[in-house]
């Protein structure tokens, strides 16, 4: 019963040109995904500083997902390649610190992939919910 009531808190960073538009398309098509997902718009997935992700976990997020244009389709040519490399580094470090790999994800969602956006969010929220609350990095000075 306790598990059922638990709602994860998920922060999604979406690039303005592909994934944010994909999220809008999911809305246009009324494709449901959990309300636990809160989207922050960034110009490009490469704008996502690892600091933002650490901050989210520090403040009690249970999962962070970064969505960008498909490789080769980046509005800014190469931004998503930086994201891919940076996040591979960061996520393996977070895993080492005890934040499971399932809590972090990079996904490519194009502006035409509303269904993929909703499916991704459903899947991600489910995986994060299965892990339960994340307490590893939470700043004890911040009350949740």
């Amino acid at each position: 019963m306790q598990m059922n009531e638990y709602k994860p808190l998920i922060v999604a960073f979406c690039c303005n040109w592909c994934s944010y538009a994909g999220a809008d398309l999911a809305g246009n098509n009324r494709l449901n995904y959990p309300a636990d997902v809160k989207i922050i718009r960034v110009p490009c997935s490469c704008r996502v500083n690892p600091m933002f992700i650490l901050r989210a976990f520090q403040r009690g997020a249970d999962g962070v997902i970064i969505c960008g244009c498909h490789p080769g389709d980046c509005h800014y040519t190469s931004g998503n390649y930086y994201t891919r490399r940076r996040m591979a580094m960061l996520f393996s470090m977070l895993d080492y610190l005890g934040i499971e790999k399932e809590r972090t994800r990079v996904e490519w969602v194009s502006a035409a992939e509303g269904a993929k956006f909703a499916a991704t969010m459903n899947d991600f929220a489910e995986k994060v919910a299965a892990l339960g609350e994340n307490k590893r990095l939470e700043d004890l000075r911040c009350k949740r």
């Binding site: 922050i40 960034v42 110009p43 490469c46 704008r47 500083n49 690892p50 933002f52 901050r55 800014y76």
Partner: peptide, 30 residues
């Protein structure tokens, strides 16, 4: 695009309209 803001090791680079402080504030609010 903001690629430079993340690459900058000293935090000198920032992006108007999507400043690090602004995104941090959004993260905090959420």
């Amino acid at each position: 695009c903001g690629a430079c803001t993340v690459a900058c090791p000293s935090g000198a680079m920032d992006l108007h309209g999507f400043a690090s402080g602004q995104i941090m504030a959004e993260v905090d609010a959420i």
